[in-house]
Nucleic acid binder design. Sequence first.
RNA 1: GGACAGGUGGCCGAGCGGCUGAAGGCACCGGUUUGCUAAACCGGCGUACUGGUUAUACCGGUACCGCGGGUUCGAAUCCCGCCCUGUCCGCCA
Length: 472
Amino acid sequence: MIDIKSLRENPQRYIDGAAEKNISVDITTLLDLDEQRRLFTRQREEHRAEQKRISKEIGPQIGKLKSQLKSANEEETLQIESQLVELEAKPIALKTEIQRLDESISTIDPQWKELLLQIPQPADEDVPKGNSSDDNVELRTWEPAGFDLSKSFKENRGFEPKSHLELVSELGLADFERGVKVAGTRHYMLTGNGMRLHQAALRFAFDLIVDSYNFTPTSVPMIIREESMVGTGFFPTGRSEAYHIEESKRGSGHDLFLAGTGEVGLMGMYGDEILDEEQLPIKMATVSTCFRREAGAAGRDTAGLYRIHQFDKVEQVVICKSDEEESRHWHKEMIVIAENILVQLGIPYRLLQCCTADLGAKNADMIDIECWMPGRGELDADGKPSGAWGETHSASRLYDYQCRRLNMRYRDADGNTIFAHSLNNTVLASPRILIPLLEMHQQQDGSVSIPECLQQYMNGLTVLEPTHASSV
RNA sequence: GGACAGGUGGCCGAGCGGCUGAAGGCACCGGUUUGCUAAACCGGCGUACUGGUUAUACCGGUACCGCGGGUUCGAAUCCCGCCCUGUCCGCCA
């Protein structure tokens, strides 16, 4: 959520910011509503103050008269009642007026709030302007020794690469048909060494960020209340992307939603709290299952492990002081961690500076990491894939946008309460990461070598052999 | 799922129609005293919005005693709905 005061002072900044992000939101209407809301609220407060003042003044008199009523004769009763009517006339008039203002405010308020939640955080000055993900800017690439990204896989390795679909099938690592049988489209079941490799990759990433980078290991709920989804900025905009559990339809309770990322639980953890400055930065890592409806992605990436409804992800989050320099510092650090993992996995990658259009509402800046996936991309004349970059990581820098929504603050040395800054980045998401992992480490004989860093998590296994395939 | 009990400031805990933003205590901060620490004493100590003004300094107003609604001239206090927590029973990894 943006700061409404900042919007009042400089609406153009937010109008331009939304336009650059290709997000349409009615800022003019919001400002109108805001104006009305403030006016009515101020009037209400004035009336209320008057009401309290009067009430204090005449309250005791009313009380006394009412107790006199009980022992009064007929004539006295009439007299007392007329006194009461007189005394109560003013506060009753105020009360009516206050109720009228309350109604106006309660009509405006939901619209005001709904709009405010939708105003995107303007992108930073140094974020390139663009219209689509085509305008993202490549910052740098990395390739393992012996692999030249300017050449094809075949030129590098001397044989045509198989796609992860073929590898998975030949090595018996996943069963798509049965996944779909059990759970429907875009579902899968990892089998045998596929499940093992998946767990190994997650465990490797989790251990690395916890042991080498001192992130606090934390578990998160994956079934989430609406407040946390709004607080972390996934709602209202991303509502259609989340699975909805309609508990309210079963009687009591509130609805719940399946989290699309561990970020929701991690960030929600300190919502509505005032932290001590000394507690910052808070660095947390989790591994959790992520659920995505993939609404609007119909027909895209329908085969394989790329775009699926359920996956597991090691996620990193940093909550730090409200300081741009520090935020930027952590952003870089978090990206380095992801890079370290990809280097150890021996997967070529590139860093992409996302342009304004690709940022989403909550980010001021976002760096994606894409891995080289030889089995993806356009098919050539022989039906062979040319390889393509595929997104595996996304590092966001949000200033206080998220903490403001979550009402997460800290107290600084001067005793002020300040909204913290937050950042998040993927550490490793699997099974998507298995795509480049398998495709890059495949060998001419159809086997796949296991990167050294994963072997200890595979009981020392160094290679996946097609002969072991369970082609059942 | 059934039966009770309860939700008040950072924590404990009083209040149960107006004098309560809320007693008292603990914790915390500042000061006095003190060889140091401790103790004692004095003072301070919530958040948000809003007005005086342009500012996190000062003064005023409003809101907040789980959440939402109602009764009342006036609600932490009365009524209704919901949420949450605890205990016991049932079920269960």
